[in-house]
Design a protein around this nucleic acid. Structure first.
Lengths: 125, 125
DNA sequence: AAACATGGTTTCAAAAAGAAACCAGAAAAA
DNA sequence: TTTTTCTGGTTTCTTTTTGAAACCATGTTT
């Protein structure tokens, strides 16, 4: 371990310098996962997204959308309406990621009881 | 949306007050994912883990391990050797989560080229 | 004697996140 | 007509989190 990634080495998230680590850091994010899951259903506008992703601030939503767009996971379309309409949609690449992320979201929803139980036991001891 | 979770409501990560949101926030973490993946192979001691999870600080490793233990995802065993040995291992519940997380880690490793390409295109424009 | 091993905690600076105000411009409500 | 609402953000400021480094006790190795 601790081996920097040079051309020819294979990718390894356990190496800090590996570009896959950067990507993991970016997708291992609560807001990114929720946004991706919402856009997987259908394209949504900025403020609509803000209302549906309960608890996200405008700043963080804006930042996260920018990063997801830069990574090619979502697309941003501007329509010259009044007022201006900005629609975000998922890309084919984003859809492949969403399949993996969906498993995490459903894990949270199906195993929540067991986790809460474990927390109660830990806190009692 | 924005409806607080009351008894009888079904769980929904898109609601900020839902306990599943707390769990998602906890598992949607770079370090937690890397730790879980390493422990899925075999039990590992603290300092060994610190060396293998390249880039993690002792403080964050310690904090993350505590949270994972509290959530029932990993187990902590202390042996009265000299110096003391502390071994961390994955639990059956942790293994079910690791299956989902593994998909994310491999996504990062398989789609990294496409993501880097998208970033270059975005930065050029 | 000095360095290194164990598994952490503590301290402090830097980075990130969150809350709130602000922006322009038009439409709708009062 | 003045106020409020809508669009999609950015800016500022505070609070939280993170990361780097030092420190801790105990014991072995060099």
């Amino acid at each position: 371990m601790n081996i920097p990634v040079n051309p020819g080495d294979r990718y390894d998230v356990y190496c800090a310098a590996c570009p896959t680590r950067m990507v993991l850091d970016r997708i291992a994010d609560k807001w990114a996962m929720l946004i991706l899951g919402r856009l997987a259903r259908q394209p949504v506008r900025f403020n609509q997204l803000r209302r549906e992703i309960d608890g996200v601030s405008q700043k963080v939503l804006s930042q996260t959308l920018k990063r997801l767009e830069r990574d090619g996971l979502i697309a941003r379309a501007v329509f010259a309406t009044v007022p201006v309409t900005v629609e975000y949609s998922i890309t084919p690449l984003g859809e492949t990621l969403n399949d993996a992320v969906a498993a995490l979201r459903t894990w949270a929803e199906t195993h929540i009881e067991t986790v809460l139980e474990a927390q109660r036991r830990y806190d009692k001891a």
